[in-house]
Design a protein around this nucleic acid. Structure first.
Length: 946
RNA sequence: GCCGAUGUGGCGGAAUGGUAGACGCAACGGACUUAAAAUCCGUUGGGCUGUAUAGGCCCGUGCCGGUUCGAGUCCGGCCAUCGGCACCA
């Protein structure tokens, strides 16, 4: 009676045994074209995990969830005859290793090496079928040499808007190539933390303080490397369509890119004193300027998605920092009758527009991001004293500055249309600006004094008929309460243009664009055409996406392959790669914003005249192309060999990796960046595919047993090593998959692991028994006999279900089916060998160790020439064996189940009807009632409607 | 506020518009055992009825409504939870 719990089966022996065999024989090595043993007949399958950052903490149970899923697919696809590429590597540049180096002075490469060893041994314990010959590490000079090389390709190219793709910089015909490179240097605002002496990523800043240490973070202009990802905004958004990605990830990327189309509309500056005639001209403004021989003043551009509301623009708002302000020709005094609250909150500064603007700018720039966001409800702003001319109706409208307009988006200026934009509405209400309704809902209810409600419909005449018909229906259902003469909020939906222009404008203007009665989409088109014809505006598209800030002031990252001479940068030659960072005594940031690499004076000095770039690349760089390197990890001539790349990334669809599994957290970072690099490399002809990942699946987060996120502080972290010690790797794998749908968030349950472990133990005991000496031997029940009809049917149903479920990644139901299978055999007197052999193959991707061992037991005794289980073909099912002779037919009355009956599978509809009607219970229920209808679903049910 | 996802027993979860709750866990009962563990068998959505261990009836997939012979599934509206974005003109 030992204190140690007896293992239900000897997984502690068989698991290491098979892992060693796989290792020694290199069973899972993927053979590339040109390599010995390559079989061109085999189709390829590339199944990829998001490679981990090897942290000191080791694996947690979340990592292996996705890894197990891909491993099952990889093992399954191999048995289906595919040449499977299933690699693993390490995304090992990053802050923790660097922080550790700062503390200890030990080179980050050493900690990285230790962590990698730990991760690798943990992964091997789970029995993943990775091709370890293809292991890569982003911090390996042999790897980052090519990261630097790709950077040089990006640096040495530009985006040709005419061809809509990247081209070598040599094809650029302009005077300043540096202004169009895809990698460029610019002064940009960054999150600078003086205390930590480094810039921080947005994610590392919480409430205006550093996530680590809680030190204040300020925005500061710094010279940085940028990648021109915005050039690819359209393609990154459009080419999502063909990818088999979760819809929410696509939406996230589209939202992040944030494309909106509309128009840039030109407003010209009007003068405050109105001493220039023609502002309210009866003629087109261009004609007026020409006639009076006056230069057309520089226009002020505003971007709008709703040019159809131009007649409702009653003011203009610029961002407080807008560069146009100094040339706005600000008046020295407030125009007559300017209300006090238009002059800003600072009493002192109200003397004149200039002082008021300066005061406002001071207040806004002092506000943190946080404060700006907190004040979202309260609109603030200052009238500039200047006016602009609305190009649609020549009306003079006031120009304001307000912090609700952002300099970074569009033109940094908006037209205020309070009736149709909620922010403009709030602003207008606060400052008493006019609100002019120019769009009405298709259908609405007007509140009237008497309380009666009058529905109004407008005719729809549009080229967007289908979409609009739906919108009209929607508005009809909603029956919007709306009062055009005194709106209580902005109406921001589509509708019908009204008062555009108004009757008095029609009478006053010699040239106008009439969009009255047009539904919004048509009105937009018409007015943009009108503006374009008069050069007062043009179609425009804007993006939320910003260029990618690509440099960091850190040590543990790829150095840039760039040198500086005479204030100019230039790329190194390919032969000078890799640029290896110097060894340092002190890895700490310097504090001034100078990267730590500047400490090494010898390293910086490139030649008498040139110095090296000392920034490093961000963590994302290595992961932008690692999936390509896996195709050809040891190539020292090229980042990836042409033939191998074309082979492993091949396929009908745009993406080369057939299945990519990882967490949602990378939805807009890694997954967008990698697509961007792939497209650049594709444009330059280095790779064969325009997209990296064809099918993407996000595994859900695994919560702790208490249904909370796993965290050290909650103490609910589950360590895979403990689970494997207790229940074995196969049980661990199967439980990870049995928990629920892969993509769903779900809690860990120790009892659940036990259940799955019991299932595997039953599989073991199905074939093995313990003899008197306490040794396991093949059960005598296992005989080379035919399976019964019932067993055969169940076996084929199981083949069918497991196959379909692996294809759809529904691993939980595949395991359920295998449990059903085993439960049916557990008490059988004889266990037919052939059925077991097939079953073991089905279970092999899930529980590779157990099935390998059992296979060996069977093979040793019965079929010594069969080879290992990993060499077997995936079984096929026979549809004919699945067919029942008799099925249970449900009889419903009015859709409610009232009785059941057995019927032959081939029973005709008439036979089923007749049987149902003559069923005594049904007769009882339907007696005295007329049968109005009988619905028959073959093999399923009869529904009698009375 | 906007966008997206999700809502089914005590729990994790199954269900091409056609028998809701497969499979597993937990719980309860039984067999084996001196005993326990392990294993095996059985019961298990709620309520009513019945007891001839049969059987029958009603309710039930977040809430309200609709389409349909029939809705967890489709449509409309609402609520809740989670995730993302957040003054993007």
């Amino acid at each position: 009676m030992s204190s140690e719990r007896r293992k239900p089966y000897p997984f502690d022996q068989i698991e290491p045994k098979w892992q060693n065999i796989w290792d020694e024989r290199q069973v899972f090595h993927a053979v590339s074209p040109g390599e010995k043993g390559f079989d061109p007949e085999k189709p390829k399958f590339y199944v990829l995990d998001m490679f981990p950052y090897p942290s000191g903490a080791g694996l947690h149970v979340g990592h292996p969830e996705g890894y197990t899923a891909t491993d099952i697919v990889a093992r399954y696809k191999r048995m289906r005859g595919f040449n499977v590429l299933h690699p693993m590597g390490w995304d090992a540049f990053g802050l923790p290793a660097e922080q550790y180096a700062i503390k200890t002075g030990q080179h980050p490469a050493i900690t990285t090496h230790e962590n990698v060893a730990k991760f690798k041994s943990q992964l091997k314990r789970i029995g993943f079928s990775y091709d370890w010959q293809r292991e890569i590490n982003t911090t390996d000079p042999g790897y980052y040499k090519w990261t630097q090389w790709i950077f040089l390709q990006i640096y040495n190219s530009w985006f040709n808007p005419e061809t809509n793709r990247a081209e070598p910089i040599s094809t650029y015909r302009g005077t300043d190539p540096d202004s169009v490179r895809l990698a460029y240097v610019a002064d940009v605002p960054v999150n600078w933390c003086p205390e930590l002496g480094t810039v921080l990523a947005n994610e590392e800043v919480v409430d205006g303080k550093s996530e680590v240490g809680g030190f204040p973070v300020v925005r500061r202009l710094m010279r940085q490397w940028m990648l021109r990802i915005t050039s690819y905004a359209d393609r990154l958004a459009d080419e999502l369509t063909e990818l088999e990605w979760p819809e929410n990830i696509k939406t996230l990327q589209r939202d992040w890119i944030g494309r909106s189309s509309g128009a840039d509309v030109e407003f010209i500056i009007g003068w405050a004193d109105q001493n220039v005639p023609g502002i309210l001209a009866l003629e087109p403004r261009e004609t007026w300027f020409e006639k009076h021989n006056v230069l057309v003043p520089q226009p002020l551009n505003v971007f709008t998605t709703r040019p159809d509301t131009l007649y409702g623009a009653t003011f203009l708002v610029l961002a407080p920092e807008h560069p146009f302000l100094p040339i706005l020709n600000l008046p020295d005094e407030w125009p007559e009758g300017t209300p006090d609250n238009w002059k800003g909150e600072d009493i002192e500064a109200r003397r004149n527009p200039l002082t008021a603007i300066e005061a406002y700018q001071r207040v806004t720039s002092a506000k943190s991001e946080r404060e700006r966001k907190a004040d979202i409800e309260k609109k603030t702003g200052v009238f500039t004293g200047a006016y602009a001319i609305n190009p649609a109706n020549n009306e003079r409208i006031p120009i304001w500055i307000a912090d609700y307009v952002l300099l970074g988006y569009g033109t940094g200026a908006v037209m205020g249309v309070p009736a149709h934009d909620q922010r403009d509405f709030d602003f207008a209400k606060k400052f008493g600006l006019p609100i002019r309704v120019v769009v009405e809902p298709f259908y609405y209810i007007t509140p009237r004094k008497s309380g009666e409600e009058i529905p109004i419909t407008n005719p729809v005449n549009t080229s967007f008929a289908v979409e609009l018909a739906e919108e009209v229906e929607r508005q009809k259902r909603l029956a919007i309460r709306y009062n055009p003469s005194a709106p209580d909020r902005a109406f921001i939906d589509t509708g019908v243009a009204i008062s555009s222009p108004t009757q008095s404008e029609i009478e006053r203007l010699s040239d106008y664009c009439d969009i009255n009665g047009l539904p919004t989409p048509d009105a937009k088109e018409k007015i943009i055409d009108w503006l374009e014809q008069r050069a007062r505006g043009k179609r425009a598209i804007n993006y939320k996406l910003r260029d990618w800030l690509f440099s960091r002031q850190r040590y543990w990252g790829e150095p840039f392959p760039i040198v500086w001479a005479n204030g100019k940068h230039r790329g190194l030659d390919e032969t000078e790669l890799p640029v290896v960072p110097p060894l340092l005594d002190d890895y700490k940031p310097i504090g001034t914003g100078e990267p730590p690499l500047t400490r090494s004076k010898e390293w910086i000095r490139y030649s008498d005249k040139a110095v090296r770039e000392t920034n490093t690349m961000p963590q994302w760089a290595g992961s932008c192309w690692y999936y390509l390197r896996f195709c050809d990890p040891h190539n020292d001539q090229r980042f990836v060999g042409g033939e191998t790349e074309r082979y492993w990334m091949s396929g009908q669809k745009p993406g080369g990796v057939d299945l990519y599994v990882g967490g949602t957290e990378h939805a807009v970072l890694h997954l967008l960046y990698a697509r961007f690099w792939q497209k650049v490399l594709f444009d330059l002809g280095y790779v064969s595919k325009s997209e990296p990942f064809q099918r993407l699946v996000n595994q859900g987060i695994i919560l702790g047993e208490d249904n909370q996120k796993m965290s050290k502080s909650r103490g609910n972290i589950v360590n895979p090593d403990d689970v494997i010690d207790e229940y074995g790797a196969d049980a661990f794998r199967c439980y990870e998959m049995f928990m629920g749908p892969l993509e769903q968030m779900k809690p860990w349950s120790t009892h659940g692991v036990e259940g799955v472990a019991r299932f595997l133990a039953r599989v073991w005991r199905l074939l093995m028994r313990e003899n008197q000496a306490g040794e396991w031997e093949l059960s005598r029940k296992v005989k080379d006999v035919d399976a019964t009809r019932q067993q055969e049917k169940l076996l084929h149903a199981t083949i069918k279900k497991v196959t379909a479920d692996i294809e759809s990644l529904s691993f939980n139901t595949a395991i359920s089916q295998m449990m059903i299978f085993v439960n049916a055999f557990i008490n059988a007197e004889t266990i037919p060998l052939s059925a077991m052999r097939t079953f073991l193959v089905l279970l092999n991707p899930f529980a590779p160790h157990l099935t390998s061992e059992l296979w060996e037991e069977l093979y040793a005794k019965f079929q010594p020439d069969l080879g290992d289980i990993t060499d077997q073909k995936w079984p096929r099912y026979d549809e004919r064996l699945l067919v029942e002779e008799e099925v249970e037919i449900v009889i419903q009355v009015n859709g409610k189940v009232r009785n059941r009956m057995k019927m032959p599978i081939l029973a005709t509809e008439e036979e089923m009807k007749a049987a149902a009607r003559t069923n005594p219970r049904i007769q009882q229920l339907t007696s005295g009632r007329t049968i109005r209808k009988v619905i028959v679903v073959p093999r399923k049910l009869v529904n009698i409607v009375v």
